[in-house]
Design a protein around this nucleic acid. Structure first.
Lengths: 148, 148
DNA sequence: TATTGTTATACTCTATAACTATA
DNA sequence: TATAGTTATAGAGTATAACAATA
């Protein structure tokens, strides 16, 4: 089974390295990958209902309740009643979390630039085209699989 | 925060798509991502002690006990005493799991080829060099971070 | 003394189902 | 009737710490 390293192997290795490093950076804090993901999405969408967050994250509403509970208890987000719909709750980033997300977005962009910088300049355009082509093909395969 | 899609975003998107699809393919079986990962590693290493599996998977020995418990209960692996070291246990793939892993490896290789095939032929070599360069840089960054 | 795997305990992520308050 | 969010319950992954058997 001494399989040669395929394209998929290398893609998976890169993201695994990245995610392990990311999780390590939260060690000792109240944050986890799922909680940071919610904060990140909230940073992109702006104040949102839990329903919207559930859809954006692709998890159950119940799960969002639990994540928001934890983030609210540690001061990362604030719950407020929806002005028009009394069933709904609006979740908002706290000031400190907004700052954390800004920093994280900057780090993310810097790392991305650093990684692209590691690619030989003559290869860069082809590399980016390749990534897009792979993503598009994967999307197509999965859609074809899901269709009846 | 309407950030442009970076290289990292695209890499993460590809593996997320892949992993979601993988998990979907186990839905309804007793298998999960972690369990399949163990089976996969076992297929590559051959019969191994739990200690070796824990190191290979990067998880605690306790966790391996739990995963092997589940896989043993469903007939995917077999535990046997180590011939020389009476503390240790050798875990082996069952015949049916060996077959499953063979099939999975073939599918993995086929998908990899399919994805690479989606890349314009003129870009392919540069794309692969780019992946290697990115992985190498990421490794280097993480090592530098871990060093005192 | 050190190592292998286990029992004990705990936390997190996740899901479904039933329920309450609203729409 | 349908929707937003909660309570209730459950399974899975993961970790540390303490322990038994063995090296």
């Amino acid at each position: 089974m001494a399989s040669p390293r395929t394209v998929l192997d290398r893609l998976l290795e890169i993201t695994e390295l990245f995610e392990r490093d990311l999780e390590r950076s939260f060690a000792g804090t109240e944050l986890t990958k799922s909680r940071v993901h919610l904060l990140w999405v909230l940073g992109e969408l702006g104040p949102s209902t839990q329903r919207v967050l559930a859809d954006a994250l692709g998890v159950s509403p119940r799960n969002v309740s639990a994540l928001v509970d934890a983030l609210e208890a540690t001061g990362h987000v604030v719950r407020a009643p929806h002005p028009d719909d009394r069933r709904a709750t609006i979740v908002t980033l706290s000031a400190s979390s907004r700052e954390t997300m800004r920093r994280m977005a900057a780090d993310h962009a810097a790392l991305s630039a650093e990684l692209l910088g590691a690619v030989d300049e003559a290869d860069r355009a082809a590399f980016e085209r390749g990534l897009d082509a792979v993503a598009a093909r994967l999307h197509a395969l999965i859609e074809a699989e899901e269709a009846p």
